[in-house]
Amino acid sequence: MAFKSEDDAKAYWKENVGIMIKLLVVWFIVSFGCGILFVEELNAIKIGGYKLGFWFAQQGAIYSFVILTLVYAKLMASLDRKYGVDDE
C-alpha cells in the first residue's frame, strides 16, 4: 500500500466514492430525469426546432456523458496526486 497511513487510505476511498456519486447524480438527471421522467414538462420549452426534453433524450444526454467522463478523469487524477498515489 502506497498510502502514508491507514487513515489516508480510508480518506482517499471516501473522496473517490464521493466524486463518483456526485457525477452519477448528474448522469441520472440528464438521462433518466430530463430525457424520460420530466420529458413532457421540458418539451414545453423549445431551443431552435428541438423540444428540450426530446433534445436531452437524443442529444443532450450524450454530450453530458462525454463531459462527465472527462471531469471524472480530471478529478481522479488530482485526487491521486493529493494522496501521492498517482502512478508516475
Partner: peptide
C-alpha cells in the same frame, strides 16, 4: 422519441464503465 432508449442506453453505459469498473 421512443428510440432514445438506444441512444442513451448504449452511451450512458460507458459512464458506468468509466467510473465503476474500468479503472
Amino acid at each position: 422519441y421512443g428510440g432514445s432508449v438506444f441512444l442513451m442506453g448504449w452511451t450512458g453505459g460507458f459512464v458506468l464503465l468509466a467510473m465503476l469498473l474500468a479503472p
